[in-house]
Design a protein around this nucleic acid. Sequence first.
DNA 1: ACTTAAATGAACATAAATGTGCATAATGAG
DNA 2: CTCATTATGCACATTTATGTTCATTTAAGT
Lengths: 253, 253
Amino acid sequence: MLAVERKARIIEYVRKQRVATIAELAQIFSVHEATIRRDLSEIEQDGVLKRTHGGVTIEEWANSEASFNDRYNERLDQKMRIGRKAAELVKDGEHIILDSGTTTLHLAKNLVHRSNLSVVTNDMNVAAELRDSPGIKVILTGGDLYPSSYMLNGMFTDLVLESLHVHKVFLGIPVLHPQHGLMHPEAKLAQTKIGMIRAAQQTILLADSSKIGKVSLHSVAPNSAVHTLITDKGVSENDIKQFREHDIDVITV
Amino acid sequence: MLAVERKARIIEYVRKQRVATIAELAQIFSVHEATIRRDLSEIEQDGVLKRTHGGVTIEEWANSEASFNDRYNERLDQKMRIGRKAAELVKDGEHIILDSGTTTLHLAKNLVHRSNLSVVTNDMNVAAELRDSPGIKVILTGGDLYPSSYMLNGMFTDLVLESLHVHKVFLGIPVLHPQHGLMHPEAKLAQTKIGMIRAAQQTILLADSSKIGKVSLHSVAPNSAVHTLITDKGVSENDIKQFREHDIDVITV
DNA sequence: ACTTAAATGAACATAAATGTGCATAATGAG
DNA sequence: CTCATTATGCACATTTATGTTCATTTAAGT
């Protein structure tokens, strides 16, 4: 079994069970515990799962009852800067999609006082953040609530996205490669992102530098589908050059 | 068992039992009492549970402002009772729709510990209430977020409802007339409720007695569309008789 | 208020999990 | 095929979670 596939299966398994021990996973996949630990370290980097002693869990269980809006403390500074810069790309009167995720939640916070916007999102936190803004029409895509999270995915999400057309989509992505493009370890979430890209005229990627250069199982889109990438200064010159060769406007903040 | 899992289960247990002793928890999870104490200290930090000598209880929000407004509390009590009774009508393995509203939210609170349920709702609060329940699959209909609320309505809501089929819908309704049936003052919300009724084999109405006997602009459905009405004892015998003539099973709590 | 038994928190001991360096096996390119 | 690269397994020093003990605090009854 390929490493990326094993990682994808680990995520699936943990999402379903909510917790898993290292020993348990090592037995399931017939690999050494050290291998599972390495896998989990990488997966945690993607922000998908949270490690604990003896095992792993979905993020929301780790800080048992983090309230509606305040569980976004990792790489906070970078994400805030990226979110602020992204907000500058939103013009009054536009219709936009905001993907689920902590970075897009920061973007949403920067849009609160804007007017005449229509915002489509599959993230309940994003929707909650914008619901009191008089100038913003909030549309939540339907879908299955991902276990213990606030994201919506699945058939109904895709159904709604299919009948939508917006100016711009702001997409978070856990894995981005200079050559192989956008990837995601989870099939369902990858599908949602594909739908979002299709619904938008312009795709704007929000990804801090830790996401760049890795690979993952499911392909979301090639780099040519992206118009703009907002990231931080931790990206190598060589990577930036390669993205620009795909006609991506790279903005570092 | 992982520490995070134990903590999550402690919260779950105390939520269900309202109180628990240290000794009790130590025995349940087969760990030393000191470990439980450490767990509780951390959980208390999150503000979910409140420690006492010898044990722990849930943080009470209802009692703090108890006699604030008698009439409000009377309604609250009715709604809680209606919600509890409605939960009895839900069987394991069923697919149900929960309408938006405070009464259905109380129903949702009574479903938290159930298993093998699929719950469709257009209320973000209901979805949030159920999101941590391992036995419940939560599906949020999409739609426009109603200004300053947590309800979803509009075209996308209708679109999703059209492709759904469930066993039962639990519907809140602001206006119910013994002859003229279900009504609603707002066209969009009326439309959503029509869609929900169409998607379900059985329609169960949750309406305290204050809603009964009035009229409103938009008709949602005739009384013949309703299978069960759960209300409180404030309904007149005459009204009940008329509902029963429409083959409605009237339950007063 | 006083007494008593239980619960608590802190300090320490112990067992388990972790990360790291290195050796080995698998994979891919030329 | 050979070589380079990556992934995996293994051993061990370090860290973390849990168990144990005990002086101090708290709750309840008289």
